[in-house]
Design a protein around this nucleic acid. Structure first.
Length: 558
DNA sequence: GCCGTTTTCGGCCCGACTGTTTTCAGTCG
């Protein structure tokens, strides 16, 4: 399958063409790249069947280019462009405010190929004198480089959300704000976020903008106008505010929520119906026929309301949409730690917190003995804890444990004790760099232990910190299905493991999942919303998630 | 370069903002 590489090359050609001010071809190449990226069939098969031109966006010229690439491994015009402009375009244009055209100018005038070259030139004040650049641009470039270095430009959803919610609440309380919503990737609940987007309808935009740029925590104002303002928060990320007229609120919200690919799809769908969709509304000719609400906008182009979490151009326009799991469906949290291990709160306090969240039950699953650093419990302590749990009558607590999957796939607690607990979670906490075969076998062996019900954070990733284990995930799914093992969706914003695409694969494989917070203190139970959001991004329905079940049904399946 | 209920030529999404310029290009979303 070479679809990805073909798509990437066409997309790069598009950028080169754009730099050359070639008209319309860039969009054509970009569109073809998009068409190839999103199609199911193998492009090499299509080529051998002489069906390249059936790909949307591919015609005579691009079909020839694809043929050239599949035959020779390269495309002549692409090689020529690369020779003419040997620059790290992806890295350079990742800088806020620097696009392809100015990157080209910088190469031609200053031989800048990389971020390193750029930083050196900016520090030596070589950028500002270049025609079209200036003092401010040079300063912005330097700041941009610092920003990229520090945070790679993206933030964890869970890190950014509390601050944005605070700004959101402050805005919402202004009497000049009539309507307000989150937008962008934050509304789609992506695991990492570039910046926060907030959309409002206001009777007095300038007043709102002025209030916004003076909120506590605002460190720098990038831009302020009558329809948008953009600031850097002291935490290091940006928040963009958009002000739109009420009659366009729905279309603007749809537009600014994205994703970009979803928007391209919806616009194409509108065009097919002889309509035009933009951030101002849905238009037939010059007549506006929808725009006030998102529902109205989708309906005008013949679509049901699509939940923001699904708007990734992953088929949401074509499939019957799932009825997504919601926060209110969650009846309990099965992966919480107490002060018996490294957690900070007593089982009783954890239980009353779960009660306050409106849950029906709480599962305590403390670490076991292999994890010394977490004060893991041994067999004796687990049985003792079991007695303690039984004494709690104010709220339904069930007892599990989070046992360790050792390198050979066995676990660190005897089966004779595991069998006495209400359920068992198992997770990999050591030796994470194994080969794909070894790690896959290790986890599957654990799944085959009849006492093990749930695999915690199955792929082991820490977002932006640690890669997933090497795993044959299809094999894992088959084993989970065979053994009836439940895969965890860990809600910790650093983990979100399973991640959205894997949740969808699990769901399609008929594997059950559980959304847990892995709380080590009671307040962390609030992280559930991030896990639910990822489950929604993975198209999960209530029936796919076992902690939406009532206690009896849950115990039956554990 | 692609595409077609505006159909084989002529249009392709486009408005806001910034920083540079001295009326606009580049970038972003």
């Amino acid at each position: 399958m070479r679809n990805k590489e073909v798509s990437k090359i066409l997309s790069n050609i598009a950028r080169f063409l754009a730099m050359d001010n070639v008209a319309f071809k860039p969009q054509a190449y970009e569109r073809a790249a998009l068409g190839i990226e999103s199609m199911e069939e193998d492009i090499e098969n299509l080529y051998s069947e002489k069906k390249l031109k059936t790909i949307p966006g591919v015609g005579e010229g691009i079909a020839k280019a694809i043929e050239e690439y599949l035959k020779t491994g390269t495309i002549r015009i692409y090689e020529e462009y690369k020779k003419k402009l040997p620059i790290d375009l992806d890295a350079l244009t990742a800088l806020e405010g620097l696009g392809a055209k100015r990157a080209r100018v910088l190469y031609q005038k200053l031989k800048i190929r990389s971020i390193k070259d750029l930083e050196r030139a900016a520090k030596n004040h070589k950028i500002a004198p270049v025609f079209g650049f200036g003092e401010k641009t040079e300063k912005n470039i330097l700041e941009g480089i610092q920003f990229l270095k520090r945070d790679k430009g993206r933030f964890l959803l869970g890190d950014i959300m509390p601050t944005v919610k605070d700004v959101f609440d402050r805005l919402a309380s202004l009497k000049e704000v009539k309507k307000i919503s989150l937008a962008g990737s934050l509304r789609r609940m992506k695991e990492t976020i570039g910046d926060g987007d907030i959309l409002i309808v206001s009777t007095f935009p300038s007043k709102v903008v002025n209030a916004f740029i003076n909120f506590p925590g605002v460190e720098k104002v990038w831009a302020k106008g009558s329809t948008k303002a953009s600031v850097r928060m002291k935490e290091g990320f940006d928040i963009d505010l958009r002000i739109v007229p009420a009659k366009s609120y729905g279309s603007a919200l749809q537009y600014f929520t994205g994703s970009k690919d979803h928007n391209i799809r919806t616009r194409l769908r509108a065009m097919e119906k002889g309509l035009k969709l933009n951030e101002y509304g849905v238009f037939r000719g010059s007549k506006m026929i929808a725009g006030r609400t998102e529902k109205e906008v989708y309906s005008a182009i013949g679509l049901p309301f699509i939940p923001p979490e699904l708007r990734e151009d992953h088929g949401e326009l074509n499939f019957p949409l799932p009825s997504l799991v919601e926060m209110k469906d969650i009846k309990g949290d099965l992966h919480c730690h107490s002060d018996w291990d490294g957690g900070s709160d007593s089982i009783k306090d954890m239980a009353s917190y779960a009660d306050s969240l409106g849950y029906e039950y709480l599962g305590i699953a403390d670490h076991t003995k292999f994890l010394r650093i977490e004060h893991g419990l041994d067999e004796k302590q687990l049985l003792k804890q079991r007695e303690a749990v039984k004494k709690i009558t104010s709220f339904k607590v069930i007892q599990g444990c989070e046992t360790n999957i050792l390198t050979n796939g066995t676990c660190d607690i005897k089966d004779s004790v595991l069998s006495q607990l209400d359920y068992v979670i198992a997770g990999v906490h050591s030796q994470m760099k194994m080969t794909k075969e070894e790690m896959t076998d290790r986890i599957i062996r654990a799944m085959k232990n009849p006492h093990i019900d749930i695999i915690a954070h199955p792929t082991g990733r820490l977002i932006q910190r640690r890669d997933e284990f090497l795993l044959d995930f299809d094999k894992i799914l088959r084993a989970a299905k065979e053994t009836g093992t439940i895969l965890e969706i860990n809600s910790n914003p650093l983990r979100l493991d399973l991640k959205d695409v894997n949740i969808r694969r699990a769901r399609e494989a008929g594997v059950k999942m559980v959304i847990n917070t892995d709380s080590h203190q009671k307040e962390q139970m609030e992280l559930m919303e991030y896990g639910v959001a990822q489950a929604r991004r993975g198209w999960a329905e209530k029936k796919d998630i076992v902690n939406t079940y009532s206690l009896n049904k849950l115990l039956e399946c554990l």
